[in-house]
């Protein structure tokens, strides 16, 4: 697999992406909330890029902005060599790139049958010649995600959480996409069901050659499924590296504490491990600190950290970090 990953032309290339939301902060007062602030990365064909971070760090916004569910404030999304700018580009993108949502309860229309939910993208993009072909495609998709085709006429509430997530995945696969943004697809599921769905993601990737952006806050899950992992903090990317590398040798102080805070499902390891417990909370993205966003909670922060935003630079081959003091740490 690593050979394929080495190839140069990425499937998705994100350059200086910014997404600001205008927020009411008082009567007649608006302020930009910098949900994603100058993020650049690329996703190689056939790989899974994990995106982790705490709530409010902008990871979901990155996923949605890539698909142009939000119009980017600035920056560029290049999909398969084609910059996404015009409505025609967006239509092209939406066929090739789809999304699986976090909550399998609210992301399925309760008034639609499973076959209509899965068939909706086919209807929109007119991907069939006649009714019989549509039904055939739906049943094939249901079979692919391990749903019983006899259940096609049922409604979403008749299914358990894991099965609903399968419906969501079948819908995402309907147009034979190349790229899927998976936004916390397993975090609403129980451990035993979670493993079933993770396995299915891996199998589908192998069968269909899919590329994933896998957004999650559960680092154990992300490490399992991802080739590379990117870490975000307050709208900025702080570290990006191979998943093994970033888990075993995190460089950024934030990543270090994040990795050490993961509760290990092993009592002996948990007793022996040294957690780096961060003090304080994440600052509000409305009043983000100047310079490095992490400096208010960082044990290594110096004056220089408040002055300028650290550059996101490659420190080792394939290992990117944004930290002023990376050489001294």
């Amino acid at each position: 697999m690593s050979k394929i990953l080495e190839q140069e032309n990425p499937l998705v290339d994100i350059r200086n992406l910014k997404q600001y939301f205008s927020i009411n902060v008082g009567p007649f007062q608006r302020k930009p909330l910098k949900a994603v602030d100058d993020v650049s990365f690329s996703i190689r064909r056939g790989e899974t890029l994990g995106l982790v971070g705490e709530s409010g760090c902008g990871k979901t916004t990155v996923g949605r902005t890539i698909l142009h569910l939000y119009k980017p404030t600035a920056g560029e999304v290049v999909f398969d060599g084609r910059p996404i700018e015009t409505p025609a580009d967006i239509r092209y993108l939406r066929k090739k790139a789809t999304m699986v949502f976090q909550d399998p309860y609210s992301s399925l229309n309760p008034r639609m049958t499973v076959s209509d939910i899965i068939g909706e993208p086919l209807d929109i993009h007119k991907a069939y010649a006649n009714k019989a072909e549509r039904q055939e495609q739906i049943l094939e998709l249901m079979d692919r995600v391990g749903l019983n085709s006899e259940h096609a006429a049922r409604y979403a509430h008749e299914f358990s959480g894991g099965q609903r997530q399968r419906i969501g995945i079948a819908r995402a696969l309907a147009l034979h996409p190349e790229f899927i943004v998976c936004d916390e697809p397993v975090s609403a599921l129980d451990v035993s069901i979670q493993a079933q769905v993770i396995n299915m993601f891996v199998e589908l990737q192998q069968q269909l050659g899919l590329t994933y952006l896998f957004i999650a806050h559960d680092i154990l899950v992300v490490r399992h499924i991802s080739n590379r992992i990117a870490v975000m903090y307050l709208g900025k990317m702080v570290e990006l590296a191979d998943s093994k590398e970033i888990y075993e040798h995190p460089l950024h102080p934030y990543t270090r504490s994040l990795m050490s805070a993961v509760p290990q499902p092993d009592p002996k390891v948990a007793r022996a491990s040294h957690r780096i417990v961060l003090s304080g909370d994440i600052p509000s993205p409305l009043n983000a600190p100047s310079g490095c966003p992490f400096r208010t909670r960082c044990a290594y922060a110096r004056e220089c950290c408040a002055e300028s935003v650290p550059e996101f630079q490659e420190v080792e081959k394939g290992h990117f970090v944004a930290c002023h003091r990376i050489k001294e740490l």
Binding site: G162, A195, Q196, I198, H224, S243, P265
Partner: peptide
């Protein structure tokens, strides 16, 4: 046993998890 097998760990990265089949 099934529960323990279905959690992703360092060893499972890149391989398959062994989930518990069926639904609760």
């Amino acid at each position: 046993k099934g529960l323990m097998r279905s959690i992703p760990t360092a060893e499972t990265a890149g391989s398959k998890l062994q989930p518990i089949s069926g639904t609760p």
